[in-house]
Amino acid sequence: MHIHQYEKLWLGLSLLLIVGFVATVTYGAVGTPAISMIGDDGDTLNPNAIDDHPEFGDPGVEKVGESEYAAYVVARQFMFQPDPIVVPANTTVTFYVTSADVIHGFSVVGTNANTMVIPGEVAELTVEINDPGEYGIVCHEYCGNGHHGMEGLLKVVPADEYDGGDAE
């Protein structure tokens, strides 16, 4: 099969580009601890039994270690629970997010803390929290005709102002 030499050159460069992309993405996903990918670590549960669940029955933030926190969040039409989610600054927070009804999204606006929320599945994402401030949370997947009103707030407060539990 005859291939023009420019075309061979182009083919080679294309493959180089592709291998380069795969390499950088691999490094970003595996080589740096700063980004944790959503995987299948979370449990599965019956969305109709959420109210009886030990953690999601009363969703909120709890301390699980030295400057480590776990935040249990339930997404349902058309709100997040708890709202706001209050966490102390300069900590590591693992969010466990699940849905009580349909598929939702959970993203902390302006950051890469972002996951799908699928009924029956628990999404687990670990986030480094830095400076105090307020971040919006949006549901980014269409979840019914009130979808546009579904939002929440993440409040990062200075460690000495944190009262250690739900702000509700």
């Binding site: 294309s14 493959l15 580009l17 592709i18 992309f21 795969v22 993405v25 691999t26 996903a29 990918m37 959503i38 995987g39 299948d40 979370g42 599965t44 972002n114 996951t115 799908m116 929320v117 699928i118 029956g120 599945e121 628990v122 999404a123 687990e124």
Partner: peptide
């Protein structure tokens, strides 16, 4: 990529295939 319940390794395979689909 952001779905809970699908292991990272399967997402990785899909990513590699996708990049080769650029060819």
């Amino acid at each position: 990529y952001l779905d809970p319940g699908i292991a990272e390794s399967f997402k990785f395979i899909a990513m590699t295939n996708t990049m080769f689909l650029l060819l």
